[in-house]
Write a protein that binds this DNA or RNA. Sequence first.
DNA 1: TCAAAAGTGTTATCCCTACACCCATGC
DNA 2: GCATGGGTGTAGGGATAACACTTTTGA
Lengths: 277, 277
Amino acid sequence: MEKIYNSEEEFLKDYDSNMFEKLSMTTDIAIFSVSNKEQNNYRKLGEKKLSVLLIKRDNYPFKDKWCLPGGFLDVKNETLDDNAKRILENETNIHNIYIEQLYTFSDLNRDPRMRVVSTSYMALIDKNRLNDKLKENASWFDVKYTKKNNIIEFVLTNGKEIITFKIKQILKELTTDRYKYTIMENNDLAFDHPLVIISGIERLKNKIEYTDIVFNMMPEYFTLGELQQVYEVILNKELLDPAFRRIIADKVTKTDKVKTGGGHRPSALFKYNDKGE
Amino acid sequence: MEKIYNSEEEFLKDYDSNMFEKLSMTTDIAIFSVSNKEQNNYRKLGEKKLSVLLIKRDNYPFKDKWCLPGGFLDVKNETLDDNAKRILENETNIHNIYIEQLYTFSDLNRDPRMRVVSTSYMALIDKNRLNDKLKENASWFDVKYTKKNNIIEFVLTNGKEIITFKIKQILKELTTDRYKYTIMENNDLAFDHPLVIISGIERLKNKIEYTDIVFNMMPEYFTLGELQQVYEVILNKELLDPAFRRIIADKVTKTDKVKTGGGHRPSALFKYNDKGE
DNA sequence: TCAAAAGTGTTATCCCTACACCCATGC
DNA sequence: GCATGGGTGTAGGGATAACACTTTTGA
C-alpha cells in the first residue's frame, strides 16, 4: 500500500531501495462536472464551465501540488473499478457515481517511489448534488483550453489558484486518425495527470454524441437551454437551437413543471427518458 | 515472472501460498487477420473470414487449452506497449505490427496462481505476410459469431479443432448505450479471453468507420472488391458497391497494375493513400 | 455465349443547416 | 416597451441508399 512521506529525507531514503522492483497499481480519476458562473444581467443565463476536481497532495513526491484523486489498489481485495469507486467515496462522499475506465498508463518513470502502472477513469457528476460535502484539500477547477495547430493549452482555475499545462497532439499511426498526447509543459499538476484529463475530455466529447452519459451531469429536472449549454461546454462549440432539440428530442420527456423568474418566457422542465429504446 | 508448472501437484502446492498477495501484470493480445477460403467456382472470389491467432498452452493452469498470446510484464524494464510488442515478436516473428490498447481487466479470480491484472491489446496484420513463420503451437482460427437477443455465440475453428463460447451483452448503465460483456459458457478458451476477443471485434467495427486501421490488414496492392470484402467481414453485413466506393474513394489511389485471371473483367489494383489529409 | 465481378450513373429520400419567425416574461 | 431566452416551422443543400446499367474477362 501507499507509503506516506512527511519529509523529503524520508522519501529520499527509500528512493534507491529495492522498492522499485515491485509493481503497484493505482487508479486516477478525472471527475467532471459543469459549473454555473453567475451573471449581473438578470435576464441572461449563467455561463457554464467544464470543471474538474483536484486534490492538494500532502506528501512526497509532488508535495503541495494539485493532482487528480487517486490511490493504490488493494491487491488482495479489489478490482480496479472497486478501487476507483472507493477513492471517489472517500474524496467526495458520493455513491453510485458514473465511472468509466479510460486508459492504462505504464511509463517507467511515472512515480519516483516505485514502479507504478496506473489505470485512469473518468467520472461524471452533477456538482450541485455534493458541493458542500467536499474535503478541505479538494477543489473544483474550471477548465479552459485552446488549440493552436497541434498544441493544446490548458488553463485551470478555482478562483484563487491557476494551473496551466501544454499538451502536444501527434498522429499515432499513419493508418489511424486517433491521436497520441504528450506533455510539453507542466509545472503545476502532479504525475502524468494532464494526459488523464485530456483523455477524459476526448472520451466525453466522443460519447456525448452517441450515448446518454451527459445526463449523469444533469439534475433530475432541467430546461433544454441548460442541457444545450452543457453540450456546448463539452463540445466546445455553439449549437443551433432547432438542431439541438431534434437531436435530444427522444432522450427527454417534458414535465408539467416550469422554471420562471428569468426575465423571459418560462422554460419547461424536462426529465431524462430512461425508458427509451 | 511467470512460473512454469509441468504437473498439477506442483501447481496446487503454490495455490494456497502467499503468492496471492503479490501483484503481477500481463498483456493479452487479440491478433486479427482476414483469411481467404478457396472456392470451387473459378469465377467466384474466395470467401473471406475474420481470423484470430491462438496459442496452445503447455503449462498449468489451463494446460492444453487454447489462449491468446500473452505474457507477464517485466516490471523493471518494460511499458505495457513494450511488453505486447515483445510477446508478438516472440510468437509471430513480426515487427512493426499495429497494436492498440483495449481494456484492463482486473477480476480477482482471473488467474488461480496469483493476483493478476491484465491489459488487453488488439493487433492487426495481413496474414499473408507471415503465414509460414508461425510457431508450431500457434494456429489461426476463423471466427464466426451470431447474435440472438443479447446472447452472442462464437464458433472458432482452425480446420481441425472447434472452440465455442457464449457471451451475454448487458447494458452497463441506464445512461450509456455501451455494453458490458460477461461470459456465459466457455469450456475451450483459457482465462477471460473471450472478453478480449469481443472487445477487439467491437473496437475494430467501430474504428473501421472513422479511421484507416483497416489498411493494416491489407497487402500493399489490393482490389476494391477485396477491400470491400474485408469491410463486410468486419462489419458482419453486406455493403452496396457504389456506396462503398464513395466512402473509401479518398483513402486509396489507383495504380497502373491490374489483377487478371478471375473469369471476369480485370480489377484495378489500389494502394493506401497515406499522404491523405 | 454466359456467369461473375468491375465499375459508373441516376434518382428519390432523408437528414441536417441555417434562417426566420413568434411567444412569454420581468423589469 | 424591450431585451432575453423559449420554442417552432421551413426552404435548400448535401449525403446516402437503392437500383439500373455497361464493361470485361475465362472457360
